[in-house]
Amino acid sequence: MSGRAAPVGSQELAELYAAHRLALVRMALLLVDHRAEAEDVVHDAFASVLGRTLRDPDAVVGYLRTAVVNGCRSTLRRRRTARGYTPPVDTGPAPPDERAVLAEDHREVLAALDTLPARQREVLVLRYWSGLSEAEIAETLGIGRGTVKSTASRALDALEKVITITQETR
């Protein structure tokens, strides 16, 4: 996008959508663990950009990432409220496309990732899945760079413990 301060048009949005939708859906899927919800969150983020005049049009991808993370948080909050204390229902086997993506060695990491608190999971997903820098993560989550570093460190330690315990019980 150019450095002009004009509303985001449908053509620009279509180009952004083509370039960034898949990466944002993957990121959202790791945060909400349900494909339809992840896609809804991403579509809502793109819809929120249409017609908006952004102070820095070059930062629209960062805006979209932040909108997706916040949308995932809202989705999880609504889900938690709806469920109360009822445990989640097993939805059965994953579709073939998801099974291909989730090779056996990755399932263990994803299961361990699900045990982390939301903030730690968000930091790790943004860092290692989306490849964001500490500064970009801090901006996306609205926290300091030091908080990103310490949260990532604690999250990696927790993941290592969970994976070690899982491997020892085999």
Rank of each mutant, 00 (worst) to 15 (best):
A38I: 05
S150I: 15
V109Y: 12
R80P: 01
A47H: 01
L156N: 14
E12V: 00
N70G: 06
I165W: 10
E122I: 10
D56L: 09
S2W: 09
L132Q: 07
A5R: 13
V61P: 14
R121F: 05
A118S: 06
E15W: 14
V60E: 00
V109F: 15
V125H: 01
V8K: 00
S74W: 13
A14T: 00
A118C: 05
T166D: 13
D157M: 02
C72A: 03
A59W: 12
H20D: 04
L76K: 10
V162E: 11
I143R: 04
S2R: 08
E39C: 11
G92F: 03
T91W: 07
E168L: 15
L13W: 04
T147C: 04
T91F: 03
A38E: 07
R145F: 06
D90S: 09
V89P: 00
A36Q: 13
E160T: 12
A19K: 09
V69L: 04
L124D: 11
P93T: 01
L24P: 00
G144F: 07
H106I: 00
E139R: 15
R73D: 06
L132C: 08
N70K: 15
A103H: 11
R99T: 04
V89Y: 03
Y85P: 00
R52H: 10
L124R: 13
T81A: 15
I143H: 02
K149Q: 06
V60C: 02
